[in-house]
Every structure is written in C-alpha cells, then in structure tokens.
Design a protein around this nucleic acid. Structure first.
Lengths: 256, 256
DNA sequence: CGCATCCTTGAGGGCCATCAAAATGCGTGG
DNA sequence: CCACGCATTTTGATGGCCCTCAAGGATGCG
C-alpha cells in the first residue's frame, strides 16, 4: 500500500483508518470500514502516562489506539514487566470482550488518543457480521503471534539483540500503518521502558544501548531512534518479519 | 467440575470432551458439543516425535489434541525454541484457520492422538453459530494469555523458578481437563525439552532440576514429575493461575 | 549385552544484576 | 534568561547466574 492510499484511508476514517492497515485491511468492505468507524462511541486524549486498563477488572468497552503508544504490562513483586507494545491502529484490548476480564494492564507512555467501543456493539458484529468478526479475531491472533516471537526473542537473544529486535519490530509496524520514516522513528520509550520490555535492568540496557551506538546499528536518544541501515539492524536482531503477517509472505486472501 | 462430571463428558464426547473443560465448557450447549464432536473428520495416533505442522505452510484443517502433549516451536539458527505447550483438549492450531498461514511449528513429544477439523467447517460455524464461534475465539485468546505469562516468566525468573512455573502451569492445566493427579503428573518431557521451553542450556537446566530436587519442590525423573507440596511449588514459581482463566477469578459468565 | 538417549558433573569465562554515584538534559518558575 | 528540581542517562566495581567445552554415568530398548 502506497503512502497516498494510506493518507486517504486515514482521511476517510480518522479514528479507525489504520486498523489492520498493512495486513488485511484490503479485505475489509467499505461498509465494514464505515461500520467500525461508527462503533467508536467516544475518544479521549491523555497527555501523561496512565494505567488505562487494570488486570482483573471487567470493562464494558474495548479500546482502539488512535494515536501514540501503549504498553501491555504485568506487575511483578516490585517491578513492572512489559509483555507487548502497541502502535496506532491496534485494537488494544479487543480480546477483553471475549475473555471477560483482563489478565494484564494497559499503560500509556507519552501522549495518546484512544477510542472506545462498547462491547454490545462487538457482540452485535459477532452475530450479524461474521466477516468483520473474523477480521477482529484475526487482529487478536496477530497479538498472539507477536507474543510468540517475543518469547523466542527472550529465550534466544542477548539484551543488545533484544533491543534491536524491538526496534526492528516497532519500525516495521509503524511502516505498515503509514507512520514510517526512512531514518528511524520517534517514540516516547525511555531506557527504563526498554528494560521492562527486554527483561534486563535499566543499567544493563544502558550498556546495550551504548553497544548498539558503537556498532552503528541504532542511535537512541530522547524521544527518537535513528537507524542508519535497516538491513544491518534486522540482521543483528535475527529479525524475520513473517510473524507480523504483513501483505507479503504470510498474508491471507481467502473465502470472503 | 468434579471428576465424575469430567468422566461422563469424556465418555459422551471421546474426541472433544476436554475442549474448554475447566474453562467455559459449562457455557457450551449440548448441541454445540455434539456439533464439535462431529467436526472431527478423522483421527491419527503418532507414536514417535514428529513435526506435524510446519511454519509458513497453509493447511486446510485445524488440529485438536485428543491425547498426549505437543510443543509449539520456532526454529533458531541451530536450536529449536519452544514458545508454548499443549495438553489434551486444546484446539492446537485453531488460529491457523483465521491467520491463513502458520507462523510456527507444532512438534509432538511422546505418543499423541490428534483429531482433524476441516477449515470449511470452522468457516461454517463462524457464519451459522456465533456463540460457538465466540468460544473458539475465546480458546485462541487463552493461548495468548499463556504466551503473555511466559513472556513475563522469562523476563522475571531464574531458570529454576521458570521450571517450577512450567510445572505449576502444566499441572493446573491437566487438572482442568480431568487428567490431574494429586502427587504430580506424567509427561514425556525431557530435560532437553525443558531447556527449549525455558531458554536455558540443557546443562544448566540439569543443575536447576537438581536444585528443585534438593529444595524438595519437585522431583523430576524419566517420564514423571513428583511434587510433594503444591503450595510450595507455586510460591517458589511466583505462580498465579489467574491467566489460565479457570473457573475462578477471571472466569466469564455473560451474555450467552 | 550393545547401543542410543538421557542425565550428571567439573572448569573457565561471559553476560548481566546490583549497589553506588554522578552527569546530562528538560520543564517550570522566578 | 537563569536557577532549580526532576527524570533520564551514564559510569564504575563486584558478584552471581548461566554459557560453553569436555567427559563420564545411568537408563531403557532390541
């Protein structure tokens, strides 16, 4: 999908135009896109970091991430652990609808804009719009695929490579939803966040960050990550983007 | 659910009687149970370890694990990494239907019996049986919840505690599907498998196994794991079973 | 009883945690 | 415009967890 298409999609659907973009958005009918857009009951913009959804609680709505970034976290005894990361267009807690209760928290970082979709509407889609329902299902399965990759990443890689993998993934995902940038990306992630995401101490993350800088793989500074050579980054991270189910290798185009 | 109920359920539905048992099986209508049972087109028993589903391939059926254990794996440069584990009653690759292609492998360990469900049947359920479709969705989200816990476990715990966590999870899951055993459980997992699951070397796993034995937490020997004190095991592993969505805290009983 | 698989043990070294402290950058208010 | 407070980043030192290489012992199966 070229930039122009993405821009017009976001113009037509300012709240949900990035949903499944770069994935199966091309499988959505225009009526489905309009329906989804109309399901956003209200939006909210948060300037400061906040826990927007809490483990164990029941919610009557699900949350679409319209702008900004959030972390999916679990609390340890004295630390917070990040188990995944979301970019604009992600239907962050769609699975909350099907699971009833959340098994984790959603925490914002930096400024975000969220859209809320009542669960009754999702239940109605399940009954009346099986094709859209299936795309909802697909979107939650994308999360699961990314979780699996994170598991392997944690089992296999050193901290420096884990960070490189995280950057490679975020960069690709931003690309897919039309927020790419050829030199890197802007992000409110701090080294402390990276520590929560990589299972390392903040101090060790700092050394890994220095290593990536010295190797010329990634330059992390406040609010931005610059990457001179994408291929080098992905090679270093042993990153293979199949699991993101982009429009290439693993894409699905069947029985609609 | 008491043992008697489980036994009668498995007697009535020998192939799929354990599906969602301990979770939302009580939400299934009898007609849905019968329907699911009839969806198993054929079964197969494998005596030796085998890769039954391969990353990147497209399949026209999904696989129900009827008996035995399988690993969900990803291949590294020279190692295999296990990202999750399945027990009888798990609809192992239901998400393969919605994702189109698999992003990982499914490998058997020990002897297993599998049931195959054609994807057309699942598509039909999506169209005609939204309630059952939602339960299918739920079951794939359970996998995601377990993935998240694995991520945190890998970020947080030492190898010995990771192993304890793995044992605690497997034991609970076996309990839920009526295969519990008050003193531990039987499993074909070797120390090499545990290494693949915990992101440690087989040698280090061996030392962690010794540690668990010396601490009196778990005694691992060929084909069996004995656990004298469940509470002690779970305490050591920092194990909290919420994420398994058993019939306790996080359970869902709504709008059917 | 021979073989394959699995388990166990020892030694040296690297990755990473933790404790402690300091430097840097950023927003706010004076 | 500067000063202050705060979050973030950086550096150094010590020790523990875990890796790798290497070898040996146990168990089960044909």
């Amino acid at each position: 999908m070229v930039d122009l298409e993405i821009a017009s999609e976001v113009e037509a659907f300012p709240l949900t135009g990035r949903f499944l973009m770069g994935r199966l958005r091309h499988d959505m009918f225009e009526a489905e896109k309009a329906l989804l857009e109309s399901m956003i009951e209200r939006t909210r913009t948060l300037a400061r970091p906040e826990r927007i959804l809490e483990k164990g609680k029941v919610y009557s709505y699900s949350t679409m991430l319209i702008d900004g970034f959030v972390l999916r976290t679990l609390d340890g005894v004295q630390n917070r652990y990040a188990v995944s990361f979301h970019v604009p267009g992600d239907f962050v807690d769609l699975h909350c609808f099907a699971l009833g209760r959340l098994d984790h928290n959603i925490d914002t970082i930096g400024e975000v804009t969220l859209g809320y979709v009542p669960h009754e509407q999702i239940a109605w889609v399940m009954r009346e719009h099986p094709h859209l329902a299936r795309l909802f299902w697909f979107s939650t399965l994308l999360d699961a695929a990314m979780h699996r990759e994170w598991v392997m990443k944690l089992e296999q890689l050193t901290t420096a490579r884990r960070l490189a993998h995280i950057f490679a993934e975020i960069w690709r995902r931003l690309d897919m939803v039309g927020l790419g940038d050829p030199k890197g990306f802007a992000t409110p992630l701090t080294q402390a966040h990276l520590a929560e995401m990589s299972g390392a101490s903040a101090i060790h993350v700092n050394r890994a960050v220095s290593e990536l800088r010295e190797l010329g793989i990634a330059d992390i500074h406040r609010g931005r990550i610059d990457i001179p050579d994408r291929a080098a980054l992905e090679r270093f991270a042993l990153f293979e983007p199949d699991y993101l189910y982009g429009e290439g290798t693993l894409s699905m185009r069947q029985d609609r």
